[in-house]
Design a protein around this nucleic acid. Structure first.
Lengths: 187, 187
DNA sequence: TTCGTCATGTAATGGGTTACATGATTAC
DNA sequence: GTAATCATGTAACCCATTACATGACGAA
């Protein structure tokens, strides 16, 4: 099951609020900076999403710590239900955790993910990339002659990038197996 | 100006038809295989797009060469206006040619692109990636300490990938400068 | 005969950016 | 003072996938 983009955003927002209460403008900035799937996230997407989470009781308005004389902002924090929901989501390691965009988001919160789950996500991602690689290679064999040099160069470059990514994941997996450190309690 | 996805699709369709007349089903298959931005292109997008191109007189229905006894398919070919329009699009080397998805599509038709234009597109793309890289590095310096090891690993991996891509482009640019081969007449 | 692929579409649905609207605060 | 950034939203528009509808053909 490929996760809807809205679910990804929900996960990311809960994850960021898990690190501490904050307001919409700051969430957007941090989501944009994370330069994953949310590089171009707009207020038109974020604010309604926050409203939905509010309506579902996963987040709640918190008092703005206040900055002398400045207009208070709308600060959100996780509710108990929100923390629980996020914990459930983090524990998942099915395909919704390692497909394309989803992997980037899940990886960003690996520090809050249990070692075992991390391992399964990394392995799932690696398997996914290996499948892609196999498909590309098959196609390369089938069409070797009738490719112009540019298409051939692009294909080879794509292959090398995927191979490199697989090696990177393998390193992470090996490291994870050697030192399976679980997340401690949040500070 | 970032090209709308529809414009990218239009470009790709005209480019494929430039190689010879064909029908919608085949276009979709080839667009999907090209595994760029059209990996998941659906009929719901392609067929209406073909209708639009038809309405604008850039493509026209051509007789199906026919396959004994089989139902004829709806085959399209470029019109004179379509060829001209494609030539105009191919000659462009502004940001609409090297931003993300656009670059993949433009690269796929490099064999039909003049050497000078190819060079400017490659250089534009490289510049774009170098800007990205600089931004990422700045951010890395600003936030070095407060990153957990996973975020740090992801950031470093992203940096390495971008560096590799820049080197790849540099190689292509150098090769292009040494042997600026222009496209011959199509067979 | 049933399943996969070929083949062409349309409609509904979902979802995201752009643009609009508004106002406070800060830096130059 | 004025431009940029902070800050919070809403509405319109664009557009792409999903699902639906339909049917022929080839292989197992």
């Amino acid at each position: 099951m490929v996760p809807r983009r809205a679910q990804l955003l929900e996960f990311a927002v809960l994850g960021l609020l898990h690190e501490g209460p904050t307001h919409g403008y700051d969430l957007r900035r941090r989501l944009n900076e994370a330069l994953g799937p949310f590089r171009a996230l707009s207020y038109g997407t974020l604010y309604p999403a926050l409203k939905t989470l509010l309506g579902r009781g996963l987040i709640a308005e918190a008092p703005d710590p206040g900055r002398r004389g400045k207009r208070p902002r709308v600060v959100y924090e996780l509710t108990a239900a929100g923390k629980e929901h996020f914990a459930d989501l983090v524990a998942r390691a099915d395909s919704s955790a390692y497909e394309d965009d989803a992997f980037d988001v899940r990886f960003a919160f690996f520090a809050r993910t249990e070692s075992e789950v991390r391992l399964r996500i990394l392995e799932g991602r690696r398997g996914r990339l290996e499948d892609d690689l196999e498909r590309v290679r098959e196609r390369a064999v089938r069409s070797r002659e009738r490719l112009d040099s540019y298409t051939a160069a692009l294909q080879q470059h794509g292959e090398e990038r995927a191979e490199r990514e697989v090696r990177w994941l393998t390193e992470l997996i090996d490291a994870e197996r050697r030192h399976p450190t679980d997340p401690g309690p949040q500070p």
